[in-house]
Every structure is written in structure tokens, then in C-alpha cells.
């Protein structure tokens, strides 16, 4: 995982000097670019630090080693929903909400109710019914 953390983390050492140079070139009067570049350094540092931290914790993955076999990557990859209706319900709630802003604001309240139902359904989908555990 070290390569991923370096890929992002080294961006910090690029964006901080670039932000300073940009600031000087604009006489510190143009703040949008200065701040955007400076916080890009923050973005790189944030992901880079997290990946470096994770790399130290999980050690070498099969894809980090030259002598790894394909089967070493087998096993549980994570929790994936095979299918779900809830994203569609939440999408409908969002669409209704945006339509409500154009048509009449009272529709937005209905969309809010739909969104609550969709979020509760989505969050608890694998905690209830057939999946209760």
C-alpha cells in the first residue's frame, strides 16, 4: 500500500510550493486560486496520511509482493449488497424535492418524508427481516 500513499502524499510537497508561488505571482490579491491550491495540498495529505496509516496496519497485501499467488487475494472483500431498491427510492425523493423547488415548495416537504423512509430503509436493510442478526 506504500505506493498508493506516496502517490497522494507527495502531492503535498508539490501543491504547497505551487500555492506560495501562485500567491506571490498574484500579489496575494487573488484568493480563489491560492486557497484552492493550498487545500489541494490538504486533500493530498489527507488521503496520503490515511493510506500510509492503513499500510502500516495491514502490512503487505498480495498485490504489493512480487512472489504472491493469485489465490492469496481470495476471501472476503467486504460487504456488498447484491441488489437494493432503496437507492431508487432515495433518488425519487431527491427528484421530487428538486421538482418541488421549481413547482411549489410544499412538494419539498413530501420529498423530505420520502427521503426519511428511503434512508431508514437503506441503512437498516441488512439489519432486519431476512438479514436480522
Amino acid at each position: 500500500m506504500k505506493i498508493e500513499s506516496k502517490l497522494f502524499g507527495w502531492g503535498t510537497f508539490f501543491f504547497v510550493p505551487v500555492a506560495i508561488v501562485y500567491g506571490f505571482m498574484t500579489n496575494w490579491t487573488e484568493w480563489v486560486g491560492t486557497l484552492a491550491i493550498l487545500l489541494l495540498a490538504g486533500l493530498s495529505a489527507m488521503i496520503g496520511f490515511y493510506l500510509a496509516f492503513t499500510a502500516r496496519r495491514v502490512g503487505m497485501r498480495p498485490e504489493d509482493r512480487l512472489d504472491a499467488e493469485i489465490h492469496e487475494g481470495a476471501g472476503e472483500q467486504g460487504h456488498f449488497s447484491p441488489w437494493s431498491w432503496w437507492p431508487l427510492v432515495l433518488g425519487l425523493a431527491c427528484a421530487t424535492g428538486f421538482a418541488g423547488m421549481a413547482i411549489g415548495f410544499w412538494v419539498v416537504y413530501i420529498a423530505g418524508g420520502m427521503a426519511i423512509v428511503a434512508l431508514v430503509g437503506w441503512v437498516y436493510e441488512y439489519s432486519r427481516g431476512d438479514h436480522a442478526h
Partner: peptide
């Protein structure tokens, strides 16, 4: 395909995709 109740933590040698 899955049962979240089983210790479904991804094996220790890989990062948790949700966290990343």
C-alpha cells in the same frame, strides 16, 4: 452471497473499502 452477521471483517491483510 453474504451474511453480515458472520465476522465479515475483510481479512486483516487488506484495507477496509468502506473506510478508504
Amino acid at each position: 452471497t453474504h451474511a453480515p452477521s458472520t465476522p465479515a471483517h475483510p481479512t486483516l491483510n487488506r484495507p477496509n473499502m468502506v473506510s478508504v
